[in-house]
């Protein structure tokens, strides 16, 4: 059993590729998180515009991408768009697909954050002469971000996990590398090792989140 799932020879051979894969996973995350946050902030700010001509398309956009399984979006870009003459390559598809998907999620979180700030606070700020933008930057956003910090963090955890989908379009990240190694050796040890790596990297985040979420739910009473 141990020979099968934790074969040290195979582990030693696969280790460098797996580490390289981890590097790509972190790189994908480092690319997707700021892109998604930026898009989400844009969406959230747009949603403060009360006109229905902005609100409705915005809700439609966010719900569309919340309803869309990210893998379907990725395959659509990767296997569908080339028929329209648009070839973005695996990396391009991942960038665009994850941008659309995580942007919608971050947008929803930040919108909830902005709405959680009592209207009185912006009014007080406007009454002291701060402009709309100044009020947003100095009074609303700091509170909004603090109020939804657990959700932002939880979303960020999901983004890191999401990058594993890139393996489907042959990006050599952690999961892809471990599957290659497993296919080559007919042994699941590389998959087990990759799981352990994911766990070790993400566990601190999970622990932290579990504390924050606990407080958030307790605070809702």
């Amino acid at each position: 059993m141990i020979e099968t799932f934790l074969n040290l020879d195979i582990l030693r051979a696969a280790w460098p590729v797996l580490l390289h894969g981890l590097g790509i996973t972190l790189l994908l995350s480092a690319m997707t998180i700021p892109l998604g946050l930026g898009a989400g902030l844009g969406l959230a700010l747009l949603s403060t515009v009360r006109t229905r001509w902005v609100r409705w398309p915005l809700i439609a956009y966010v719900d569309l991408f919340r309803a869309f399984p990210p893998l379907v979006l990725l395959i659509l870009l990767y296997a569908g768009l080339p028929f329209a003459g648009i070839e973005m390559g695996g990396f391009g598809c991942v960038a665009v697909g994850f941008f659309l998907n995580t942007g919608a999620y971050y947008g929803e979180v930040l919108r909830a954050g902005i709405e959680s700030v009592p209207a009185g606070h912006s009014e007080a700020a406007r009454a002291t002469g701060l402009s709309r933008l100044q009020t947003l930057i100095w009074v609303v956003l700091p509170q909004a971000i603090r109020n939804v910090a657990p959700d932002l963090l939880s979303n960020t955890l999901e983004v890191v996990k999401l990058t594993s989908l890139a393996s489907v379009v042959a990006i050599p990240e952690l999961l892809f590398q471990s599957r290659q190694a497993q296919a080559l050796t007919y042994n699941p040890t590389p998959l087990v090792a990759a799981s352990v790596i994911y766990f070790v990297v993400l566990w601190p985040l999970v622990r932290l989140l579990s504390r924050l979420e606990h407080r958030a739910i307790a605070g809702r009473r």
Binding site: T4, R179, P188, L191, Y198
Partner: peptide, 23 residues
């Protein structure tokens, strides 16, 4: 609970499908 929150679902699927036959 922590483990299944930390692992990407796709790697769990792959692990079960390709790994469990070894057991």
């Amino acid at each position: 609970v922590d483990a299944f929150r930390a692992l990407p679902p796709l790697i769990i699927i792959v692990l079960i499908y390709f790994g469990l036959p070894g057991a």
